[in-house]
Computed example of a mutant assay.
Amino acid sequence: MAVPVNKEELIKAITLNYSKLKKELITIPSELTSIKELEGHSKGTVMSINNLLSYLIGWGELVLKWIYKKEQGLPVSFPEEGYKWNELGKLAQKFYIDYQNYNYLELNTKLDKIVTDIINIINSKSNQDLYEIAWYEKWTLGRMIQFNTSSPYTNARARIRKWKKENDIKD
């Protein structure tokens, strides 16, 4: 799918990519979700399915936080307070720790809610708000949302499909 350039395409990309990811997630036995066998977000690391969900949740929550703070006129630390853009591997590790006490079902439920919240925010915005105004440096709000939702959902699905194939897990 091409990079979304308007509100309708953004909603479609998030909805489609998330629905494809969910189809993969529902076929994973929960007892396998905490085993660290997937390539991690930092070079030379491994992660579990639960870590991968934690990563997606962490980024989704950051998107919501950025939007909320901007709307309140508060300063926003991008990507997150205490992290620089060249430290995303460390940020991924933080997300794994943040959600380490959640089980697979809870992580799925939390991610579902975040995706719904983000789509609701997109629906509340005009196309101009999303794609015609620089929101962070040169990036529009729509692009910042897409970078941290639909694109990572596609990447996560590919990681899961590779892991399922390596472990002979059928759909």
Rank of each mutant, 00 (worst) to 15 (best):
M1Q: 13
V3T: 14
P4H: 06
P4T: 05
P4K: 04
N6F: 04
K7Y: 02
E8H: 07
E8P: 03
L10C: 08
A13Q: 03
I14K: 01
I14A: 01
T15I: 00
L16R: 05
N17G: 09
N17V: 03
N17R: 13
N17Y: 08
S19H: 06
K20T: 05
K20H: 11
L21V: 06
K22C: 06
K22N: 08
K23C: 06
K23Q: 14
E24W: 00
L25R: 09
I26Y: 06
T27A: 15
T27G: 15
S30V: 07
L32K: 10
T33Y: 01
S34H: 07
S34Q: 09
I35D: 04
I35K: 13
K36N: 11
K36Y: 00
K36W: 00
E37I: 03
E37L: 13
E37G: 10
E37A: 09
S42M: 10
S42Q: 11
S42C: 09
G44Y: 07
G44V: 10
T45D: 08
M47S: 13
N50K: 13
N51R: 02
L52C: 06
L53D: 03
S54R: 04
L56C: 05
L56R: 04
G58T: 04
G58C: 04
G60E: 05
G60L: 07
E61A: 11
V63D: 00
I67K: 01
I67A: 01
I67P: 00
K69A: 09
K70V: 11
K70R: 10
K70C: 01
Q72P: 00
L74R: 12
P75H: 00
P75C: 00
P75V: 02
P75W: 00
V76D: 05
F78P: 09
F78Y: 15
P79E: 04
G82W: 04
Y83N: 12
Y83W: 10
K84P: 04
W85C: 05
E87Q: 11
L88K: 08
L88V: 12
K90D: 15
L91E: 03
A92R: 02
K94N: 02
F95A: 08
Y96I: 11
Y96G: 11
I97R: 14
D98M: 11
Y99F: 15
Q100V: 07
Q100N: 12
Q100A: 10
Y102C: 14
L105S: 06
E106A: 14
E106F: 03
E106K: 13
K110A: 12
L111M: 07
L111T: 05
D112A: 13
D112C: 12
K113G: 02
I114D: 09
I114W: 01
D117N: 14
I118H: 03
I118R: 02
I119W: 08
N120Q: 12
I121T: 03
I121Y: 05
N123M: 08
N127S: 15
N127I: 14
N127C: 15
Q128W: 06
I133P: 03
W135Y: 15
Y136V: 09
W139Q: 15
W139L: 15
T140C: 10
T140H: 06
L141P: 07
R143T: 11
M144P: 08
S150D: 13
P152S: 09
T154W: 06
T154R: 12
N155S: 15
R157Y: 01
R157S: 12
A158F: 03
R159G: 07
I160S: 12
I160G: 12
R161W: 06
W163E: 01
W163R: 01
W163L: 01
W163F: 01
K164E: 04
E166K: 11
I169T: 09
D171C: 07
D171S: 13
